[in-house]
Amino acid sequence: MRGIRLPRFALALPAWAWLVVFFVAPVAMVVYFSFGYKPGIFGTHATDVLSFDRYGEALSPTFFQTFTNTLWVGLAGTALCLLIGLPAAYWMAVKVPPSRRGLLLALVMVPFWTNFLVRTIGWQVILAPEGWLSSLLQGIGLTDGPLDILYTRTAVLIGVVYNYLPLMILPLFVAFDRVGGPLREASKDLGAGRWRTFTRVTLPLARPGVIAGVLLVFIPLMGDYITATVLGGARGNMVGQLVASQFQTAQNWALGSAMAVMLILVIMATVAVGGLIVWLATMPFRLRNRLVLGDEPASAPAGRSGDDGPAAGGAEPVRTEQGVSA
Protein backbone atom coordinates (compact mmCIF):
# COMPACT_ATOMS: atom_id res chain seq x y z
CA MET A 1 0.00 0.00 0.00
CA ARG A 2 1.42 3.34 -1.05
CA GLY A 3 0.95 6.72 0.58
CA ILE A 4 -0.44 7.53 3.97
CA ARG A 5 -2.96 5.05 5.37
CA LEU A 6 -6.05 7.07 6.20
CA PRO A 7 -8.26 5.98 9.09
CA ARG A 8 -11.38 4.02 8.08
CA PHE A 9 -13.71 6.88 8.94
CA ALA A 10 -11.78 9.54 6.97
CA LEU A 11 -14.47 9.95 4.30
CA ALA A 12 -17.15 10.43 6.94
CA LEU A 13 -15.19 13.13 8.74
CA PRO A 14 -16.65 16.15 6.89
CA ALA A 15 -20.22 15.04 7.57
CA TRP A 16 -19.32 14.20 11.14
CA ALA A 17 -17.74 17.61 11.73
CA TRP A 18 -20.68 19.39 10.07
CA LEU A 19 -23.23 17.63 12.26
CA VAL A 20 -21.20 18.14 15.42
CA VAL A 21 -20.87 21.88 14.81
CA PHE A 22 -24.42 22.54 13.60
CA PHE A 23 -26.41 19.87 15.41
CA VAL A 24 -24.70 18.49 18.50
CA ALA A 25 -23.27 21.83 19.69
CA PRO A 26 -26.48 23.86 19.36
CA VAL A 27 -28.63 21.13 20.91
CA ALA A 28 -26.14 20.79 23.76
CA MET A 29 -26.37 24.53 24.25
CA VAL A 30 -30.17 24.31 24.48
CA VAL A 31 -29.85 21.59 27.11
CA TYR A 32 -27.47 23.87 29.01
CA PHE A 33 -29.86 26.84 28.71
CA SER A 34 -32.68 24.73 30.09
CA PHE A 35 -31.02 24.71 33.52
CA GLY A 36 -30.76 28.50 33.56
CA TYR A 37 -33.38 31.20 34.08
CA LYS A 38 -34.73 34.40 32.50
CA PRO A 39 -33.07 37.45 34.02
CA GLY A 40 -35.44 40.40 34.04
CA ILE A 41 -37.70 41.55 31.24
CA PHE A 42 -35.10 42.21 28.55
CA GLY A 43 -32.80 39.23 29.03
CA THR A 44 -33.53 35.96 27.23
CA HIS A 45 -31.47 33.58 29.35
CA ALA A 46 -28.83 33.42 32.08
CA THR A 47 -26.89 30.44 33.29
CA ASP A 48 -24.97 31.70 36.33
CA VAL A 49 -27.33 29.77 38.63
CA LEU A 50 -28.23 26.29 37.41
CA SER A 51 -31.35 24.47 38.60
CA PHE A 52 -34.18 22.19 37.52
CA ASP A 53 -36.71 24.97 38.18
CA ARG A 54 -37.53 25.50 34.49
CA TYR A 55 -38.54 21.85 34.19
CA GLY A 56 -40.91 22.33 37.12
CA GLU A 57 -42.29 25.40 35.38
CA ALA A 58 -42.67 23.51 32.09
CA LEU A 59 -44.79 20.91 33.88
CA SER A 60 -46.95 23.44 35.74
CA PRO A 61 -50.70 23.07 35.09
CA THR A 62 -50.73 25.83 32.42
CA PHE A 63 -48.28 24.00 30.18
CA PHE A 64 -48.95 20.45 31.37
CA GLN A 65 -52.29 20.49 29.56
CA THR A 66 -50.50 21.18 26.28
CA PHE A 67 -48.19 18.22 26.91
CA THR A 68 -51.13 15.85 27.52
CA ASN A 69 -52.91 17.31 24.51
CA THR A 70 -49.84 16.69 22.33
CA LEU A 71 -49.52 13.14 23.62
CA TRP A 72 -53.20 12.52 22.89
CA VAL A 73 -52.88 13.83 19.32
CA GLY A 74 -49.64 11.84 18.89
CA LEU A 75 -51.10 8.52 20.04
CA ALA A 76 -54.48 8.93 18.36
CA GLY A 77 -52.84 10.19 15.16
CA THR A 78 -50.40 7.28 14.99
CA ALA A 79 -53.16 4.74 15.71
CA LEU A 80 -55.36 6.24 12.97
CA CYS A 81 -52.46 6.27 10.51
CA LEU A 82 -51.87 2.58 11.21
CA LEU A 83 -55.57 1.71 10.87
CA ILE A 84 -55.92 3.65 7.62
CA GLY A 85 -52.49 2.85 6.19
CA LEU A 86 -52.30 -0.88 6.87
CA PRO A 87 -55.15 -1.98 4.57
CA ALA A 88 -54.03 0.52 1.94
CA ALA A 89 -50.42 -0.75 1.99
CA TYR A 90 -51.61 -4.37 1.94
CA TRP A 91 -53.82 -3.59 -1.04
CA MET A 92 -50.94 -1.96 -2.91
CA ALA A 93 -48.46 -4.72 -2.18
CA VAL A 94 -50.69 -7.78 -2.58
CA LYS A 95 -53.90 -7.07 -4.48
CA VAL A 96 -52.78 -4.62 -7.16
CA PRO A 97 -51.15 -6.11 -10.28
CA PRO A 98 -47.34 -5.58 -10.11
CA SER A 99 -47.35 -3.46 -13.26
CA ARG A 100 -49.44 -0.79 -11.58
CA ARG A 101 -47.56 -0.74 -8.25
CA GLY A 102 -44.96 1.80 -9.36
CA LEU A 103 -47.65 4.26 -10.34
CA LEU A 104 -49.52 3.83 -7.05
CA LEU A 105 -46.31 4.29 -5.07
CA ALA A 106 -45.60 7.46 -7.00
CA LEU A 107 -49.14 8.65 -6.21
CA VAL A 108 -48.58 8.06 -2.48
CA MET A 109 -45.27 9.89 -2.67
CA VAL A 110 -46.52 13.00 -4.48
CA PRO A 111 -48.35 14.47 -1.44
CA PHE A 112 -45.37 13.48 0.69
CA TRP A 113 -43.13 15.72 -1.39
CA THR A 114 -45.62 18.55 -1.83
CA ASN A 115 -45.04 21.49 0.46
CA PHE A 116 -46.15 20.48 3.95
CA LEU A 117 -47.45 23.94 4.79
CA VAL A 118 -49.40 24.27 1.55
CA ARG A 119 -51.03 20.85 1.98
CA THR A 120 -52.10 21.86 5.47
CA ILE A 121 -53.51 25.14 4.13
CA GLY A 122 -55.50 22.97 1.72
CA TRP A 123 -57.19 21.41 4.74
CA GLN A 124 -57.82 24.83 6.19
CA VAL A 125 -59.69 25.69 2.99
CA ILE A 126 -61.63 22.41 3.09
CA LEU A 127 -62.62 22.63 6.75
CA ALA A 128 -63.43 26.36 6.78
CA PRO A 129 -66.98 27.09 8.04
CA GLU A 130 -67.65 29.00 4.81
CA GLY A 131 -65.97 26.39 2.59
CA TRP A 132 -67.51 23.94 0.13
CA LEU A 133 -67.45 20.92 2.45
CA SER A 134 -69.44 22.87 5.00
CA SER A 135 -72.00 23.90 2.36
CA LEU A 136 -72.15 20.36 1.00
CA LEU A 137 -72.82 18.84 4.42
CA GLN A 138 -75.49 21.43 5.11
CA GLY A 139 -76.94 20.94 1.65
CA ILE A 140 -77.52 17.21 2.11
CA GLY A 141 -78.74 17.85 5.63
CA LEU A 142 -76.00 16.12 7.60
CA THR A 143 -75.29 19.18 9.73
CA ASP A 144 -77.51 22.05 10.77
CA GLY A 145 -75.05 24.92 11.01
CA PRO A 146 -71.70 25.69 9.38
CA LEU A 147 -68.89 23.16 9.94
CA ASP A 148 -67.30 23.82 13.32
CA ILE A 149 -64.11 21.78 13.08
CA LEU A 150 -61.44 24.29 12.11
CA TYR A 151 -59.28 25.47 15.03
CA THR A 152 -60.11 22.46 17.21
CA ARG A 153 -58.22 19.36 18.25
CA THR A 154 -60.21 17.34 15.70
CA ALA A 155 -58.89 19.55 12.90
CA VAL A 156 -55.33 19.03 14.15
CA LEU A 157 -55.94 15.28 14.25
CA ILE A 158 -57.23 15.24 10.66
CA GLY A 159 -54.25 17.35 9.62
CA VAL A 160 -51.60 15.17 11.24
CA VAL A 161 -53.17 11.92 10.02
CA TYR A 162 -53.15 13.36 6.53
CA ASN A 163 -49.63 14.76 6.73
CA TYR A 164 -47.95 11.65 8.14
CA LEU A 165 -49.98 8.92 6.42
CA PRO A 166 -47.46 8.42 3.56
CA LEU A 167 -44.75 7.79 6.16
CA MET A 168 -46.87 4.89 7.44
CA ILE A 169 -47.86 3.47 4.04
CA LEU A 170 -44.38 3.35 2.49
CA PRO A 171 -42.59 1.13 5.08
CA LEU A 172 -45.69 -1.07 5.39
CA PHE A 173 -45.77 -1.49 1.62
CA VAL A 174 -42.11 -2.50 1.56
CA ALA A 175 -42.71 -5.00 4.39
CA PHE A 176 -45.79 -6.61 2.80
CA ASP A 177 -44.06 -6.74 -0.55
CA ARG A 178 -41.14 -8.57 0.99
CA VAL A 179 -43.33 -11.32 2.46
CA GLY A 180 -44.07 -12.45 -1.08
CA GLY A 181 -46.75 -14.64 -2.61
CA PRO A 182 -45.27 -18.15 -2.13
CA LEU A 183 -45.51 -18.00 1.69
CA ARG A 184 -49.14 -16.93 1.53
CA GLU A 185 -49.90 -19.70 -0.94
CA ALA A 186 -48.16 -22.25 1.25
CA SER A 187 -50.28 -21.13 4.17
CA LYS A 188 -53.45 -21.48 2.13
CA ASP A 189 -52.36 -24.90 0.84
CA LEU A 190 -51.96 -25.97 4.44
CA GLY A 191 -55.61 -25.12 5.03
CA ALA A 192 -55.53 -21.64 6.52
CA GLY A 193 -58.20 -19.20 5.39
CA ARG A 194 -57.38 -15.71 4.18
CA TRP A 195 -57.87 -14.06 7.56
CA ARG A 196 -55.75 -16.68 9.28
CA THR A 197 -53.05 -16.38 6.61
CA PHE A 198 -53.00 -12.63 7.17
CA THR A 199 -52.85 -12.72 10.96
CA ARG A 200 -50.53 -15.72 11.32
CA VAL A 201 -48.16 -15.35 8.34
CA THR A 202 -48.28 -11.98 6.57
CA LEU A 203 -48.68 -9.67 9.56
CA PRO A 204 -46.02 -11.29 11.81
CA LEU A 205 -43.52 -11.23 8.96
CA ALA A 206 -44.34 -7.59 8.21
CA ARG A 207 -43.66 -6.60 11.81
CA PRO A 208 -40.47 -4.60 11.05
CA GLY A 209 -42.50 -2.48 8.63
CA VAL A 210 -45.18 -1.87 11.25
CA ILE A 211 -42.57 -0.84 13.81
CA ALA A 212 -40.81 1.44 11.29
CA GLY A 213 -44.09 3.03 10.24
CA VAL A 214 -45.25 3.67 13.80
CA LEU A 215 -41.92 5.29 14.73
CA LEU A 216 -41.70 7.30 11.49
CA VAL A 217 -45.16 8.72 12.18
CA PHE A 218 -45.14 9.13 15.95
CA ILE A 219 -41.77 10.86 16.40
CA PRO A 220 -42.16 13.74 13.92
CA LEU A 221 -45.85 14.03 14.78
CA MET A 222 -45.09 14.76 18.44
CA GLY A 223 -42.81 17.63 17.44
CA ASP A 224 -45.22 19.00 14.87
CA TYR A 225 -45.47 22.75 14.71
CA ILE A 226 -47.02 23.59 11.33
CA THR A 227 -50.20 21.51 11.46
CA ALA A 228 -51.20 22.78 14.88
CA THR A 229 -50.40 26.37 13.89
CA VAL A 230 -52.48 26.25 10.72
CA LEU A 231 -55.41 24.13 11.91
CA GLY A 232 -55.30 24.24 15.70
CA GLY A 233 -55.67 27.85 16.73
CA ALA A 234 -55.99 28.40 20.46
CA ARG A 235 -57.98 25.23 21.15
CA GLY A 236 -55.58 22.76 19.52
CA ASN A 237 -52.25 23.70 21.00
CA MET A 238 -49.20 21.45 20.75
CA VAL A 239 -45.82 21.56 22.47
CA GLY A 240 -44.04 22.65 19.29
CA GLN A 241 -45.96 25.94 19.34
CA LEU A 242 -45.28 26.32 23.04
CA VAL A 243 -41.53 26.02 22.49
CA ALA A 244 -41.66 28.42 19.53
CA SER A 245 -43.65 31.01 21.46
CA GLN A 246 -41.16 30.96 24.36
CA PHE A 247 -38.37 31.77 21.90
CA GLN A 248 -40.22 34.17 19.61
CA THR A 249 -42.69 36.10 21.75
CA ALA A 250 -42.09 35.47 25.46
CA GLN A 251 -38.30 35.71 24.96
CA ASN A 252 -37.79 33.17 27.73
CA TRP A 253 -35.12 30.96 26.20
CA ALA A 254 -34.52 29.08 29.42
CA LEU A 255 -38.13 27.93 29.71
CA GLY A 256 -38.37 27.27 25.97
CA SER A 257 -35.25 25.11 26.14
CA ALA A 258 -36.62 23.15 29.10
CA MET A 259 -39.83 22.53 27.14
CA ALA A 260 -37.85 21.34 24.10
CA VAL A 261 -35.86 18.91 26.25
CA MET A 262 -39.08 17.73 27.94
CA LEU A 263 -40.62 17.13 24.52
CA ILE A 264 -37.74 14.87 23.52
CA LEU A 265 -37.91 13.05 26.87
CA VAL A 266 -41.67 12.53 26.51
CA ILE A 267 -41.19 11.14 22.98
CA MET A 268 -38.46 8.74 24.13
CA ALA A 269 -40.40 7.64 27.21
CA THR A 270 -43.58 7.03 25.20
CA VAL A 271 -41.70 4.97 22.61
CA ALA A 272 -40.04 2.93 25.39
CA VAL A 273 -43.28 2.35 27.32
CA GLY A 274 -45.22 1.61 24.14
CA GLY A 275 -42.58 -0.88 23.00
CA LEU A 276 -42.62 -2.60 26.39
CA ILE A 277 -46.42 -2.85 26.44
CA VAL A 278 -46.53 -4.31 22.94
CA TRP A 279 -43.73 -6.72 23.77
CA LEU A 280 -45.49 -7.94 26.93
CA ALA A 281 -48.91 -8.09 25.27
CA THR A 282 -47.68 -10.22 22.38
CA MET A 283 -45.54 -12.51 24.55
CA PRO A 284 -48.16 -15.30 24.93
CA PHE A 285 -48.85 -15.14 21.21
CA ARG A 286 -45.16 -15.41 20.35
CA LEU A 287 -44.59 -18.28 22.75
CA ARG A 288 -47.50 -20.19 21.22
CA ASN A 289 -46.33 -19.52 17.67
CA ARG A 290 -42.71 -20.40 18.20
CA LEU A 291 -41.67 -23.78 16.94
CA VAL A 292 -38.43 -24.89 18.53
CA LEU A 293 -36.40 -27.35 16.47
CA GLY A 294 -33.58 -28.86 18.45
CA ASP A 295 -32.45 -27.49 21.78
CA GLU A 296 -33.05 -23.88 22.63
CA PRO A 297 -29.71 -22.27 23.51
CA ALA A 298 -29.68 -21.58 27.24
CA SER A 299 -28.50 -18.01 26.81
CA ALA A 300 -31.17 -16.93 24.33
CA PRO A 301 -34.33 -15.45 25.88
CA ALA A 302 -37.65 -16.84 24.72
CA GLY A 303 -38.42 -13.85 22.58
CA ARG A 304 -36.68 -10.68 21.59
CA SER A 305 -38.38 -7.37 21.20
CA GLY A 306 -37.54 -4.81 18.60
CA ASP A 307 -36.45 -5.39 15.10
CA ASP A 308 -35.47 -9.01 14.67
CA GLY A 309 -37.44 -9.27 11.46
CA PRO A 310 -37.42 -12.03 8.88
CA ALA A 311 -33.95 -10.98 7.76
CA ALA A 312 -32.43 -11.28 11.23
CA GLY A 313 -34.55 -14.34 11.99
CA GLY A 314 -33.03 -16.11 9.02
CA ALA A 315 -29.69 -16.15 10.78
CA GLU A 316 -31.07 -18.41 13.49
CA PRO A 317 -32.42 -21.46 11.74
CA VAL A 318 -33.39 -23.21 14.97
CA ARG A 319 -36.40 -20.97 15.41
CA THR A 320 -39.11 -20.66 12.80
CA GLU A 321 -42.56 -19.19 12.69
CA GLN A 322 -45.33 -21.73 12.66
CA GLY A 323 -47.88 -20.93 9.98
CA VAL A 324 -50.67 -23.25 11.07
CA SER A 325 -51.32 -24.81 14.41
CA ALA A 326 -50.76 -28.52 14.63
Binding site: L19, F22, F23, A25, P26, V27, M29, V30, F33, H45, I219, P220, M222, G223, D224, Y225, G240, V243, A244, F247, W253, G256, S257, A260, L263, I264, I267
Partner: peptide
Protein backbone atom coordinates in the same frame (compact mmCIF):
# COMPACT_ATOMS: atom_id res chain seq x y z
CA UNK B 1 -30.39 13.97 13.73
CA UNK B 2 -33.35 12.36 11.98
CA UNK B 3 -35.52 11.82 15.07
CA UNK B 4 -34.96 15.20 16.71
CA UNK B 5 -38.08 17.30 16.10
CA UNK B 6 -37.48 20.13 13.65
CA UNK B 7 -38.67 22.67 16.18
CA UNK B 8 -35.86 21.64 18.53
CA UNK B 9 -33.26 22.02 15.75
CA UNK B 10 -34.78 25.40 15.00
CA UNK B 11 -34.71 26.82 18.52
CA UNK B 12 -31.19 25.39 19.02
CA UNK B 13 -29.76 26.81 15.79
CA UNK B 14 -31.06 30.33 16.32
CA UNK B 15 -29.02 31.16 19.47
CA UNK B 16 -26.07 29.16 18.11
Amino acid sequence: VSVTPEIVDAVALLPW
